[in-house]
Simulated scan of single mutants.
Amino acid sequence: MPARLTVRRPSPTTVCFTVSNAPARCTIPSKLAFCLQVLLRALVFACVLLVDAAKLRHSIFTRNGSVVPWEDVWSSAIGSFACQVSDRYSWWVIAVLSPLVIYGVFRKGYTEESLLVIRGLGIQTSTSSATYWSTATTRFIPTTQIQDIVIHEAFKGFEVRFYLAVIVEEEPDVVVVFPSLLPKRMILEEVWRGTRRCLYESKSGPIHG
């Protein structure tokens, strides 16, 4: 899905540019589909845990306890099905497949990158993590270390791609903004102009190619 740009201005001296390839959830069907996806993920996660518990039922999850009545669970329809699945495969198959399925459940399936610009302080880049359980990768660059903000072009395979870069003082490499998504030049130009306007309180000059 192509990347979309969202611009938020919490204050006159702060602007946040967010680029994301997540599906838009503006309509009722899209919101219902998202809720259904969340329920499906939760169901799959619960089934994986139940199958894992069923594999260990003879050694750990055997007796009725004060919290979970395991004997009643295993005698139920869904518990019996979990036992059948766990008995069908060896322990190493379940040990390998369970983490893979759980990773798929918690995998976002989209990328979100942002550029937060604060006049007088600097900029902060952020790239979302691949899963819901890990945090985003961020970096803050003070205004005093920013030499320039430019739009460069580079080859990606046989395709020419544009990218927004921050030239940082005393660093040999530039800091690429939106490195995973690499949005189109039209988006980069809007971010470039807005960033320079917010940082330096002046009209942007010609774009560096």
Rank of each mutant, 00 (worst) to 15 (best):
S30T: 08
Q147M: 05
T27D: 06
M186C: 07
L116M: 06
Q84T: 13
V175E: 05
P29T: 07
T6F: 15
V166R: 01
W92N: 06
I207E: 07
S98Q: 02
I207W: 05
E201C: 14
G205E: 05
Q84S: 11
D52T: 13
S126E: 03
V174N: 08
R8M: 10
G109P: 09
V160D: 10
Y89D: 05
V44W: 12
P2D: 05
F45V: 08
L36H: 10
H58K: 13
F158Q: 15
S129N: 06
V68Y: 14
I94P: 03
N21R: 02
L100S: 08
S202R: 12
S90A: 08
C83R: 13
A3T: 11
S11H: 12
L50T: 06
R57E: 09
C198G: 07
V73M: 09
A165P: 02
S128H: 01
V7T: 09
V191T: 01
T195G: 02
M186T: 15
R196A: 07
Q145G: 00
S126L: 13
P183I: 03
S90P: 02
D148W: 08
S76G: 15
E153H: 05
R139N: 15
Y132G: 12
V105N: 03
P179E: 03
P99E: 00
E113Q: 03
I60R: 15
C16L: 05
L116H: 08
F45Y: 15
T138K: 15
P10A: 00
T18N: 09
L50Y: 06
R139P: 04
S86F: 04
R161N: 04
T143L: 11
L121D: 12
L43T: 14
V176W: 01
K184D: 04
F106C: 09
K31I: 07
V176K: 00
S202V: 14
V105Q: 08
V105K: 04
L115Q: 05
I102M: 14
L97E: 03
H208G: 10
V93G: 13
C26P: 09
W70M: 10
L115R: 00
L43Y: 11
S59W: 11
E112G: 02
P99D: 04
L182V: 11
F106E: 02
V67E: 11
F140K: 11
L36Y: 09
C35T: 12
L39Y: 09
K31N: 14
P172Q: 03
V117H: 00
A3L: 07
R25D: 06
P183Q: 00
L39E: 08
R193H: 09
D52P: 07
R8Y: 08
L36P: 12
T135L: 07
V150E: 10
V150L: 13
A53H: 10
H58F: 15
D72H: 12
G209A: 13
I60D: 12
T18Y: 08
L199G: 03
M1C: 12
E159C: 07
W192T: 01
R41D: 03
L121W: 07
R107V: 07
S114C: 02
F158D: 15
R139C: 07
Q145N: 14
V51W: 01
V96W: 00
